[in-house]
Write a protein that binds this DNA or RNA. Structure first.
Lengths: 348, 348
DNA sequence: CGTATTTGTGTTATCGTACACATTTTTTAA
DNA sequence: TTAAAAAATGTGTACGATAACACAAATACG
């Protein structure tokens, strides 16, 4: 690799001053066609690329990045996201960035809306958020429409024009679960999909996972899975009677991170044959994974979603690094053995 | 976050000039104890961190990074690594780095040694390599001993003093495979470990995987697995007679990326009941994964190993970013469904 | 006591880019 | 033809860290 060429090299080659080159580069006008031609030719010939380091130093602004995240104190599912964000913040502590965290109440769309608007008023240069509520998200996006603000989301997909989305293919994760159950009981299979409906915000997620699971069953000539939705109240009663009604059940797929609650019930009635699959590396889930009540966990990796997305945003602002419009993380299958390797992963 | 403090702020606070501050920062002497005390205090109080961007700009050197990699033309296992490296190179094309690739012959330790020494003569600032041969690696490391060169490895672990290692816990991956087989045939299980010994360089890898597999079996009261090593010659004959001898075999664990060769044989004799687990997302493996002959693949993710490691090296040189001494990547379990999500992963 | 030498300190140019401002050249109008 | 306006181009400084250099004050030594 030959040494990098600078603006000065271009200027010399084209026989003009660096100021003129700069004007061409930034299309600020006030340049004769003749000079412009020569400069453009020189840029091409020398394959000039501006030095992003120098640009960043020059601009010298403190990039303000808003992160709009559900409050982990209100729903611990978001704890790993917060951790990921914090890690990235300390990773870039030496750089001129200012990450402002806005924690909204995941059960109140208004809280989301208000904090989104607050981020706008605070004049953030980028907003990285979980678009939990469709209508409110649109309202926020409208606000930012004119402003030159980098908009990035994670966890929940969104149709709107967003610069970046980091997440997972939920349909595929449902199919993956179905395949795992199918593997472990290779006949026609009698399976159940359990939705645990704590807050309606997960509805979309659960539906997509279910859809994937069912599509696998159909394509592979399996019996259609049973479906049941459990709420916090009468959780155990309902589940137990469901199990009694379906004695021949071979596997259960829990579409949320609360598989441990199902495991608890299964344990209490000494039901050991049923294969149980759930989501996420929560401590409660891991405990039952080690005991063998939970057989597989699917890793949604919210932490990586958050940290990777924020990193894309930061590196774009700082170093002008490009990023993909959509980044779908791999669907991790976790059993009692490789769990460790995913937990260690946590710390960078 | 308050605005970043600069060397100038420190100078003002301590009532000295920036030159004096710089001398303290770099321990270049020529500073009175009184000034030093004041400066150190100011640095502490303002929590001063040097701006890595400015430092890099000032230093302005082109960092030369040597990458010592087995030639993918001679062993296609390394193709993804090369791709990962190339991706990172283009990702940082705007920065002042010069990545020099040295392709050695993975079947000839001498080739490895020679290119390692060549990298030294070329005066690289960092060397990122696969330490395939122990003795030769030590010889190379000795060379670099005095020089202030960043040494990083991937894929093959090493005891020596290396700044960074990116890889996987091989023992754990063997355990993971055992757990998967156990899940799919929940009695005492009759399993076989198949080593496919193409080149001795894999010996260490294979041994560790076997070790993990066996330890799982012991801990879980399973039968000890059978072990067989196959060479290219008489591959099929040997395998077929092995299968005939053990009609009740329930699962096979192939410790290399050549599970597809075993799958080919199983297919040819219409053996469908045996569960087959292998390594790596090769096209040949994926084909049999979709067909159902291969049931699981374990993802060693050589591409991420290479790209992540190189990225650590580059970001350390460019931005003084820190990295862990050892980075063990998660052990990915792949079935026919989530394979897609890992393949998509390939492109950044 | 005067000249060397050491020690402490401040000033300044540099890296590559960006932009305000100064200066020169060209065009237009009187 | 010449002054004014417009267009084109060059110059200087800043971003923050670094280090060579200049210079003063303090100390050493014959």
């Amino acid at each position: 690799m030959r040494a990098k060429h600078t603006i000065k090299d271009i200027a010399e080659k084209a026989g003009v001053s660096i100021g003129t080159v700069d004007r061409v580069l930034h299309e600020r006008g006030r340049v004769s066609k003749a000079s412009e031609r020569k400069i453009v030719a020189a840029i091409k010939e020398l394959d000039y690329k501006p030095n992003p380091i120098a640009q960043t130093l020059k601009n010298g602004i403190v990039h303000k990045i808003g992160v709009l995240l559900p409050n982990p104190d209100l729903d611990s599912f978001w704890r790993p996201c917060e951790e990921g964000i914090q890690e990235v913040i300390s990773e870039y502590s030496a750089f001129t960035i200012d990450v402002v965290l806005y924690y909204f109440n995941p059960f109140k769309s208004k809280s989301f809306l208000q904090l989104g608007h607050k981020a706008y008023r605070d004049g953030v240069h980028a907003l990285f958020f979980v678009p939990l509520f469709d209508r409110e998200t649109n309202s926020i996006l409208e606000k930012f429409d004119d402003a030159d603000v980098l908009l990035a989301t994670f966890n929940s997909p969104l149709l709107n024009t967003i610069d970046l989305y980091v997440g997972q293919d939920l349909v595929l994760s449902g199919r993956t679960a179905a395949r795992l159950l199918h593997m472990s009981s290779p006949d026609k299979g009698k399976f159940a999909i359990v939705h645990i409906n704590e807050s309606f915000e997960n509805a979309g997620h659960m539906r997509k996972k279910e859809q994937g699971f069912i599509s696998y069953c159909i394509e592979n000539g399996l019996n259609a899975p049973l479906t049941i939705t459990l709420m916090a109240e009468e959780f155990k009663t309902k589940l137990v009677s469901f199990l009694e009604m379906h004695q021949d059940l071979q596997g259960i797929f829990v579409t949320t991170s609360k598989a441990h609650e199902v495991a608890k019930v299964l344990d209490s009635i000494n039901q050991e044959k049923i294969i149980l699959i759930g989501y996420d590396l929560l401590d409660e889930n891991l405990e039952y994974l080690q005991k063998g009540t939970i057989d597989f966990l699917i890793h949604q990796d919210p932490k990586t979603q958050a940290s990777l997305g924020l990193r894309y945003v930061i590196e774009n602002l700082l170093f002008k690094k490009e990023f993909p419009k959509e980044k779908l993380l791999p669907i991790g299958i976790i059993n009692s053995e490789n769990a460790k390797s995913y937990i260690a992963q946590a710390s960078v």
